[in-house]
Structure formats: structure tokens, C-alpha cells
């Protein structure tokens, strides 16, 4: 079970307090109707799935309730960093 640092609580807590929320930094297009079917499909379905550094979202669902971003190594499962939503990609 992972230990995850919540950047809002500034605490390292056990994984059971958190919920995974998919890849990070995939902003909802401001005007979806302007997108082609292909571009919209890419937004909906295509994810990077890297071996190594992965930018992903977590929610401290059984804590402060905030969504935040993280960089996790998908090989070692270690967190390189967690940071608040809205902060630039690390």
C-alpha cells in the first residue's frame, strides 16, 4: 500500500485514503463543439500510458477531498512529486 503526500493537507497518508483519478493535465477543451470527431475522441480515450514517469491525478477522497496531481514512476511505483491542481506540469 502506497504512501501518498497530499499537497493540500501537507501530510503523507496511506493509499486507502485516496482514489486514483486518471492521467493528469488533460484539460477539457473550452469549446468541445469546435473539435473534430477525431480530436474529441483523442481527448476522450487516448492516454499516454508511459513506462516510467507518469503524470496522474489523485483525490484525497477520505481526507480533504481535493484533487491533485502526481508524478509516479510506473516501473517502481514510487512518487516523484505531488502538487496542487492548477500548478504547472512537473
Amino acid at each position: 500500500m502506497l504512501l501518498i503526500h497530499c499537497p493540500y493537507c501537507d501530510e503523507q497518508r496511506a493509499e486507502i485514503e485516496f482514489a486514483y483519478a486518471g492521467e493528469a493535465h488533460i484539460a477539457r477543451p473550452p469549446d468541445p463543439s469546435a473539435l473534430s470527431d477525431e480530436d474529441w475522441s483523442r481527448y476522450l480515450f487516448i492516454r499516454s500510458n508511459p513506462r516510467g514517469r507518469h503524470h496522474e491525478r489523485w483525490r484525497h477522497i477520505h481526507g480533504c477531498g481535493r484533487f491533485f496531481n502526481a508524478v509516479r514512476d510506473t516501473v517502481t511505483d514510487t512518487f516523484e512529486a505531488t502538487y496542487k491542481a492548477g500548478e504547472p506540469r512537473r
Binding site: 483519478a21 484539460a27 483525490r59 477531498g65 484533487f67 491542481a85 492548477g86
Partner: peptide
Amino acid sequence: LNMMEDYLQTEWP
């Protein structure tokens, strides 16, 4: 609730 919080916090803060 989780879905609404997600949009509220991250898409339309």
C-alpha cells in the same frame, strides 16, 4: 458527488 467535485475543482475552479 465525486464527478461534480472533479469538474468543480479542476475544470471550472
